[in-house]
């Protein structure tokens, strides 16, 4: 554990909680892509199956349970409790175009051809592109509420901090996970355009367009 990973995890947690609280407080999920949230729930489910097979630390176990729980709570709020406010007409990204190729890639490029390892690899690849339905929705409607942009900013910061974490671990622990690093770089790049808009627009006019 290093400072980059800890702050990365906390930033990730902040993003998840910001989104959950926003939907809960406003009683609305307008502007939020339910499809991205389904993909994140799928990411956490397939990655954290090791909760059942190996214990790493109390911190690790608690965070995994919180992430999975919040992901399903978010999906529940969007598709059940506040379904009437869900902006399905603008959430038109075809997620099968992500899930199918990512599933195929996980079968072809992985550390070990075993069920749990393939599912872990699938979750890593899928996480790197899971935000695309949300970004697509924003580009389609041309706007996002400020709080939604804070959510995206925290998610992007989490990915960027994980890159520093891997640099740190490479130098000080000799740790090197090619699959996680390549997917992490791809994921961070997807946020770059958003980062630019966030810094130049959101903080200037409090409205993201």
């Amino acid at each position: 554990m290093n400072v980059f990973r800890l702050t990365g995890d906390l930033s990730h947690l902040a993003a998840i909680i910001i989104l959950l609280l926003k939907i809960w407080k406003t009683r609305s999920c307008a502007g939020i892509s339910g499809k991205s949230q389904i993909l994140f729930a799928l990411v956490f489910t397939t990655r954290y199956l090791d909760l059942l097979t190996s214990f790493i630390s109390l911190y690790n176990t608690c965070m995994k349970i919180i992430y999975v729980g919040c992901a399903y709570a978010t999906v529940y709020l969007i598709y059940a409790k506040f379904r009437a406010t869900y902006d399905g007409n603008h959430d038109t990204f075809r997620i099968e175009f992500l899930v199918v190729p990512v599933g195929g890639l996980a079968f072809l490029v992985n550390h070990d051809f075993s069920p749990l390892e393939i599912l872990w690899t699938f979750s890593i690849y899928l996480e790197s592109v899971a935000i695309l339905p949300q970004l697509f929705m924003i580009s389609k409607t041309g706007e996002a509420e400020t709080i939604t942009t804070h959510y995206l900013f925290c998610l992007g910061v989490y990915r960027a901090l994980y890159l520093f974490n891997w640099i740190w671990r490479f130098y000080f622990e000799g740790f090197f996970d090619m699959i996680a690093i390549v997917a992490g770089v791809v994921q961070t790049i997807l946020y770059c355009d958003f980062f630019y808009l966030y810094v130049t627009k959101v903080n200037a006019v409090q409205r993201f367009q």
Partner: peptide, 10 residues
Amino acid sequence: TDVPAIHDEL
């Protein structure tokens, strides 16, 4: 590449 025996990150 190295194969991590256990995935210790979130």
